[in-house]
Design a protein around this nucleic acid. Structure first.
Lengths: 343, 343
DNA sequence: TTGAAAGCGGTACCAG
DNA sequence: CTGGTACCGCTTTCAA
C-alpha cells in the first residue's frame, strides 16, 4: 500500500492525503480524519526511502565506533547512552546507524557518511584531547554533538558531559575524610579527555589538603581487567602500599579486586575501594560501608540530551553550540547486602 | 556533485556514467576508466537515498534490542558479534541500524521496519524458547538470521550459534576430572535458549558419571553481579557447599567472586570457578591453573557469518535456510600471571 | 481546501 | 557501446 493507492481508494489526490497525514493546517478537518482512519485501516506506512529522497534528509543519526575502542561497546556507560539516545530517535522517526570502523579509516568513514548522505548528523564518542575529529566534522559540515569534551580544541562545539572532575574530586575527598593518605588512582588512558579530567579532580583534592600526588600511586592504562590487576599488583608490592583505590571503571576494578584477593586483603576491612561507574564500592572505616557512584544512571539522560541537541541542531542550525554538564553525585548506602542496580 | 553534473562535465549521459561506475560489462573500457578517474577527482559519491529509492532496497540491516535486555549491549558477546557483523556490512555498503525498543513494542518495531522499508533484513538477538519472533518475521516476510536458536519452534529458520551445550558439558567434565563432586551452576534465565542448552550440557555431564544433579546447586537468573552474588551466598551457606562454580557470564562471575571473597575462599586454592565468556577462570588442583574459555573469540566470527548469511539470503532467497554451529572450545593455560585478553 | 505536476538522484528498460 | 526516458514514492510549489 503506497500513497497513490491510498489516495485512489479515498478518491483524493496524493497531495491531499500527504498533507492530511503530515498535519498540514490547510486540509479540511473532516478530510483529515477520513484520511487518517483509512491509513490506519489499510495499515499504511509511508516509504522511508521515498521520504528521504524527497526531503533530502536521511532521518538517521550516525554513531561511529572505532574498532580499536570496540571494548567501548562493552562499557555500561555506552549501553546506557545508546539506550537514552535511541528513545529520542524512535520518538522522532529517526534511525540510529552504528558504524564500527577500523581506527585508521575513521576519517574516511565520516566523510563517506557525509557525502553519501546516510545520516544527518553524528554523535562523537570517546573524545580525546585535541581531538581532530571536531575540526574534521566542522570542515565537512556534518552536524554533531560530542559525548564528553575535547580539551585543547579551540573551535566551539556542542557537547554533553558528566562532571568527571568533580566526581573524582569528591570521591578522593571522601577517602581523605576517612583518614586515607595513600590513595591510588587506577585511571584510563590519559589522552582520553575524561581520564585527564578524572586525574585532575583527584590531584586537586589531594593538593587542596597539602598532599603531593605520588606518581607511584597513579596508573593510566586501558580499562581492562588485566591492566587493573597489574597496576594494583605493582602498587601493593611497594614498601608503602596504598590504603585505598580509586578505580576508573568496573572492569579495571575487577582486576584490582583480584590483586587484593591474592594479597589476602579483604574489601572494607583491610582496604577501601571506590569503583567509578560500578554499582558499588567498599569503604574501610571500622565498618563495611558500600558506596554507590551515580554516574551510570545519569548517562542515559545524557544520551537523551545529546540526541535532542543534535536533532535540534539539524533542524535549526545555530551560531553558538549548546553544552550541558551533568553532575555525577556520590550516594552513600548501607552495608546490608548487595546494592540495588540502579541508584 | 551528483550524477547528472558529473555526466555533463564528461560529455556523457547519466546512464553511461552510472553503468561505468557500477561495472556494467557493456561499457567501453576506456570510457569506464575516464569516468572512474573523474569521479575520484571530483570526489563524487552516489547519493545513498537515491540509490535506495531507485533500487527498492534499503541497503541496511536492522538489529533490534529490546529495552528489557538492554544489559545485553553490555555483554562482551554482543560487542564482538556486532563488530564482526559490522565488518561485513561496511564491506558491502550496508548500514547497521540499531533499534532499542521498549519490550512491549518489539513486534510493532519489526512491523514498522518492514513496512517503512528501513531495512532489508534483521538479525534476531537473544532468542528464547518458542520464540514468537520467528513466526512473526516469517509472517511479515522480513528476511532474518537468528543469533542463537529457539527450541520448540517448528518453522525452519536460519541461525548461527556457538555450541553452548558442548561447552558446558566439557567445562563440567573438566571440573569432574579434577575431582569435584559438588559443582554449582549459576546460569542465565532459562527461558533464554542458550541458558537451557548450557544447563543441558551440565546435567548431561553429571549424569554421564552417575551423579544426580542437585537443584540446590543450580541457579537461574539475570546475569547480573547481584544475582550471581545472591546465588553464591545461598549455596555457600549450605551445610554441603559446592567446591566449584560454573558461571554463565563475566558479570555474574563477578558476583560469585565477591561472595567467595566474603567467605574468605581464595580462588584456585580453596575453590574452583570457570567463568564462561570471561578471559579467565581459576582451577583448584593443588596448583593455581587459569583456564580460558574461547567463546568470545569465536563470537566475532559468528557475527561475520550471520551477516554474510543474511546478505546472501536477501540476494538469493532460498528454500532451505542455512545454519551454522560453531564450537566454543576450552583452552587450558598456564598460571603465569594474568591471562591474555584474546585467546 | 484541493489537485496537477515538477522534482529529489539515481537505476534500468528500450532504442539506436 | 551509448543515450533517452520512464520510473521509485514521496514532498512541495503553483494554480485553481
Amino acid at each position: 500500500m503506497n500513497l497513490k493507492e491510498l489516495a485512489t481508494k479515498l478518491g483524493l489526490s496524493p497531495t491531499t492525503v500527504s498533507r492530511a497525514l503530515n498535519d498540514y493546517p490547510e486540509v479540511n478537518e473532516v478530510t483529515r480524519q477520513r484520511v487518517k482512519a483509512a491509513a490506519k485501516r489499510h495499515n499504511y506506512h509511508p516509504n522511508a526511502r521515498a521520504i528521504r529522497l524527497a526531503t533530502g534528509r536521511a532521518m538517521a543519526i550516525g554513531h561511529v565506533i572505532p574498532l580499536a575502542t570496540r571494548h567501548e561497546i562493552v562499557n555500561p556507560v555506552f549501553a546506557d547512552f545508546i539506550a537514552g539516545a535511541g528513545e529520542v530517535y524512535s520518538r522522532n522517526d529517526h534511525d540510529m546507524v552504528l558504524s564500527v570502523v577500523p581506527d585508521d579509516e575513521e576519517d574516511a568513514a565520516y566523510r563517506a557518511l557525509r557525502s553519501k548522505g546516510n545520516v544527518d548528523g553524528v554523535i562523537v564518542h570517546g573524545p580525546r584531547m585535541e581531538d581532530h575529529r571536531i575540526a574534521l566534522l566542522h570542515e565537512i559540515g556534518l552536524p554533531f554533538v560530542v559525548h564528553g569534551r575535547a580539551s585543547g580544541v579551540t573551535l566551539p562545539y556542542p557537547w554533553v558531559d558528566v562532571n568527571n572532575r568533580r566526581a573524582f574530586h569528591r570521591a578522593t575527598d571522601f577517602l581523605l575524610d576517612l583518614g586515607h593518605r595513600r590513595i591510588a588512582l587506577v585511571n584510563g588512558l590519559e589522552f582520553m579527555d575524561f581520564a585527564m579530567r578524572r586525574r585532575g579532580g583527584y590531584v586537586e583534592a589531594l593538593t587542596a589538603r597539602g598532599l603531593p600526588p605520588d606518581p607511584a600511586l597513579m596508573d593510566s592504562n586501558e580499562m581492562t581487567e588485566v591492566s587493573g590487576y597489574r597496576a594494583a599488583k605493582r602498587m601493593l608490592a611497594s614498601p608503602t602500599p596504598p590504603t585505598a583505590f580509586l578505580a576508573s571503571s568496573m572492569i579495571s576494578g575487577m582486576g584490582i579486586r583480584r590483586a587484593l584477593e591474592e594479597h589476602g586483603l579483604k574489601l572494607g576491612r583491610d582496604i577501601s575501594i571506590i569503583i567509578h561507574d560500578d554499582d558499588l564500592s567498599y569503604m574501610k572505616n571500622g565498618e563495611d560501608v558500600p558506596i554507590f557512584t551515580a554516574t551510570r544512571s545519569s548517562v542515559r539522560e545524557a544520551g537523551r540530551i545529546a540526541a535532542d541537541m543534535l536533532l535540534g541542531l539539524i533542524a535549526h542550525p545555530q551560531e553558538v553550540p549548546p553544552t550541558r554538564l551533568l553532575e555525577a553525585d556520590l550516594v552513600i548506602g548501607q552495608s546490608t547486602g548487595p546494592a540495588p542496580l540502579a541508584v
